[in-house]
């Protein structure tokens, strides 16, 4: 299995919560080794690090900066350029509402407002129980289905502000059963 796949899978797996920070950093080293510490591999390494840790804490960025021999400012520049990267812990389900042109004209902003109200959080924040976090997405390439929102890797098409509560409910249910039941 490729290291990428392993990490992606691991990130989606609840087991990662049990790995210590030290073990995660060792895994990060493996990812960087996999790319031969190639300076050009900054973005894929950041993507995989985010999958692994759930977000990009500063010690992770420092390590990537040191191993790729790239200035910290440059790594930070890339992280702050892409809305996909996050420096704060994310909820289990990351909600991204597309605000691209097609989605925007078909009411994505109202969808976003409804979600903010429903979750009680602002953009870039996570709910207290770490079930959800909310971000603006750039175009997902599904303009014909606008407005589009993604929850984790699920794409929801033609979403309506009034249906947000119901949409969130399914994820909430699975989240709380996991919380109670521990490991699946």
């Amino acid at each position: 299995m490729l290291v990428e796949d392993a990490c992606m899978e691991e990130a989606h797996n609840h087991e990662t919560d049990e790995l210590s920070q030290q073990e995660l950093l060792e895994k990060l080293d493996e990812i960087i080794d996999h790319y031969g510490a190639d300076k050009g591999a900054l973005i894929p390494i950041l993507q995989m690090a985010q999958s692994l840790f759930g977000y990009l804490p500063d010690p992770v960025l420092s390590k990537i900066s040191a191993r790729l021999e790239k200035p910290f400012s440059e790594v930070a520049g890339v992280v702050s350029f892409y809305s996909f990267f996050s420096r704060t812990p994310q909820g289990k389900h990351q909600i991204r509402v597309c605000l691209g042109t097609a989605c925007y004209v078909r009411g994505a902003k109202e969808v976003l407002t409804s979600l903010k109200k429903e979750l009680g959080i602002d953009l870039g924040e996570s709910t207290e129980d770490r079930c959800f976090s909310l971000e603006v997405g750039r175009c997902f390439g599904a303009c014909g289905l606008a407005p589009v929102a993604m929850v984790g890797t699920d794409v929801h098409q033609r979403v309506k502000p009034s249906k947000m509560k119901a949409l969130l409910q399914d994820y909430r249910l699975s989240f709380s059963s996991e919380e109670e039941g521990g490991e699946e």
Partner: peptide, 10 residues
Amino acid sequence: AVGALFPQGR
């Protein structure tokens, strides 16, 4: 070769 400055954000 110091690299203290870089564009941040977009």
